[in-house]
């Protein structure tokens, strides 16, 4: 797992079952798990329902996990099983009977899906570490795909400021994600 804060939170949660630690775990995994569920369901609302359901179950009935990383695998396994069962319900097939805490195995497709969800979180984390304005500009440009003039209008700044913030974001990210951005430095920034 990437972040020490999450490992601390999981340990603390296993010990105290407190809401504060659970919140850290929740925020850390929520988007990744939704993204993962959405890969199965191709429906973001249902994906969010599944993830909320999984967190509710974990909160009500904390699994006995021996180490922090086991909880991570357990969360993904629960999401996967619920997604598969939803698909099977739609197809009128019998539901899986799964024991989630048993040996958790992933097939090749599932492995890639998990890796993707996990890697996206860390890339996003780097973007979210950018200074506030640079981050806003970067997100509007790269994710919302607005043009410079549109960004300037929305944030009530000049086009030149937009350019400056973009440059700043790009240079920070180049440093943070060296191997990612060296290959895509030509993208439309």
């Amino acid at each position: 797992m990437e972040s020490d804060t999450v490992i601390h939170a999981i340990n603390s949660y296993l010990l105290k079952h407190d809401l504060r630690s659970f919140k850290v775990i929740y925020h850390h995994f929520y988007k990744s798990l939704c993204f993962f569920a959405n890969d199965y369901l191709s429906d973001s609302d249902t994906a969010e329902d599944v993830v909320q359901d999984v967190f509710t179950q974990v909160w009500d009935n904390m699994p006995e996990v021996s180490e922090p990383s086991k909880l991570q695998a357990y969360l993904y396994a629960m999401v996967r099983n619920r997604c598969l069962n939803r698909i099977r319900t739609q197809q009128n097939l019998q539901k899986y009977q799964t024991n989630e805490i048993q040996e958790i195995a992933w097939d090749d497709d599932e492995s890639v899906r998990i890796v993707k969800a996990e890697v996206l979180r860390e890339i996003m984390a780097s973007i979210e570490k950018l200074p506030e304005r640079a981050q806003e500009v970067f997100k509007l440009s790269y994710l919302t795909q607005l043009r410079e003039q549109e960004i300037a209008d929305r944030l009530n700044i000049t086009v030149n400021s937009v350019k400056t913030h973009k440059k700043r974001a790009k240079s920070i990210l180049k440093d943070e994600l060296r191997h990612l951005f060296s290959l895509i430095s030509i993208f439309h920034l």
Partner: peptide
């Protein structure tokens, strides 16, 4: 993941999930 357009699309989906809203609901 090295293709800026594809990565942008994936990040957009990833970021469309709102964990703050979901937490409040939780």
């Amino acid at each position: 993941i090295r293709d800026p357009n594809l990565l942008g699309e994936e990040l957009k989906v990833y970021n469309s999930f709102d964990s703050n809203k979901a937490w409040d609901q939780f």
